[in-house]
Design a binder for these strands. Structure first.
Lengths: 144, 144
DNA sequence: AAGATATAATTAGTTTACTAATTAAAAAAG
DNA sequence: CTTTTTTAATTAGTAAACTAATTATATCTT
């Protein structure tokens, strides 16, 4: 009746990912970052490429449009982002980091970076490569 | 200025996990399962071991206590679970699947199982073993 | 050019996650 | 035995995820 080890293969990824997010969130709180993990993900995306539309941000962060709308609302209130209407397509906004937003990114990045390193501690370069390949393969499988 | 490939190593797991959850949710909706992925995770846990406390369920599913409370509320309303007070410790409930709850589990399980198989398609037994080991290692790192 | 279709963003409603605070009961300390 | 400290569950409040529906603008079709 009672399985000794439940077949959590399906839940394995989510479990790990949730633990990572929870810990990262606590780390951000400890340093008084003033942004959540999900908000930071958007900052990071924009730090790499400014002026994306909300749709593009949603794609890249695997969030849906309403969620992106609200996170951007919050980040705009905090003066970390700003919306500029796209002259070519008036349905769109282009989203930009404010100077304060970029400073926030620069400030928080080292903390996230060191968190990642601790999470991936003991994994060889080959392990990381394999992990990346496995994740990519699964993502491919899900697209079809 | 613009990095060609953003260093999404930290986000890699979350991205994959979110995609999996999103797809699984759609699958459940398609078949009219009447439960969400998160609700199903609790059903699954209880199908493997009945009579757990809410605290134990929270631990095993990596959810916090308030979340478990609410999910159990919903599942009790649907008559899939029931709370029984623990005679030895009156602060606790023991949570049990109702017969309908067990039928729901039996009905939904094959769908989740086939979803997992499609997600993990093309991964060798060795790949899966490695994946499990990598996830476990990361989870260990996060505990310390 | 006019109507039909598609797309970007928003709004509304339900569910989930986290924190903090509260309640009730158990366990530990005096 | 009484007080203090823990523990299980709940409540409240904010943030985030999904769906469905709406609005405004662009594009396609005829």
């Amino acid at each position: 009746m009672k399985n000794p080890t439940p077949p959590l293969t399906g839940f394995l990824l989510e479990r790990t990912s949730k633990l990572m997010k929870r810990q990262a969130q606590r780390r951000l709180k400890e340093i008084g970052a003033g942004v959540t993990v999900d908000q930071w993900v958007l900052l990071q995306e924009l730090a790499h490429e400014d002026g994306l539309s909300q749709y593009e941000l949603a794609e890249r962060t695997v969030k849906d449009a309403p969620t992106v709308t609200r996170i951007i609302d919050l980040l705009c209130e905090k003066k970390l982002l700003e919306r500029r209407t796209d002259k070519q397509d008036r349905r769109r906004f282009k989203i930009f980091l404010t100077p304060a937003g970029r400073r926030k990114y620069e400030q928080v990045y080292p903390v996230i970076r060191s968190f990642r390193e601790s999470a991936f501690e003991g994994l060889s370069a080959n392990d990381k490569k394999q992990l990346t390949q496995l994740m990519n393969r699964i993502q491919e499988n899900l697209k079809t």
